[in-house]
Amino acid sequence: MAVKDTSNTSSIFELDRQTAVPAVIGNHKDFLIVSGLAGTSKDMASLTDDAANLYTMAGAMGAATGMGLGLALAQPDKRVLVATGDGELLMNVGTLATIAVLNPPNLSIVCVDNGYYGETGYQKSHTSRGVDLEQMAIGAGMKMTSTVEREDQLEDGAKMLRESNGRSFVVLRVNPKEPPAYKRLMEPSACRVRFRSALLERP
């Protein structure tokens, strides 16, 4: 039996995250946002000026998608965006299956995929070695998926994140350059109180 080489060596990691992330998300005020740790949290804090509609993490790696699901189910009238990175998503990729089964109509996920563990010194992640997160999401049952790796795909990616009626998943491939240097609120409890106070008008 012939062994088929399915490694995806043609992935493009060219977009600049500092312009691509804002382009694909658009007006952040349209979302309640949960962001995983490391570079993605800096992207999101910079984009929103660390606003109260954003909960960022600096630990609990792999928690962003599950947290987004709980929030989306709790707030069915608001659109929830999970922002995560390739390293974080790989740590708990099974949550995509949990989300797909529940299929909340108001949850979108963007994975800023630079192919590296930037926070720990730019070691290659699996996505630099042929692993395709969009294919994993499709396998998990996510019906609306796309990979954005060129300028001319940004608009469609942005559309999918905000207009899909059902769980949507966008891989945003970017080059492994530094995220914005933004000093966000790092105290997890203060961030919780800030988020709830803005959403519920009480802590």
Binding site: V34, G66, L69, G70, L73, T98, V101, L102
Partner: peptide, 26 residues
């Protein structure tokens, strides 16, 4: 009630945190 089958238990911990952010109980 949302009945949520998890692939691994820690998803449920994260879910409970997200539920609280949105004022629900898990």
């Amino acid at each position: 009630v949302h009945s949520i089958a998890l692939t691994t238990e820690e998803e449920g911990v994260a879910l409970a945190a997200g539920a609280h952010l949105g004022d629900a109980r898990a």
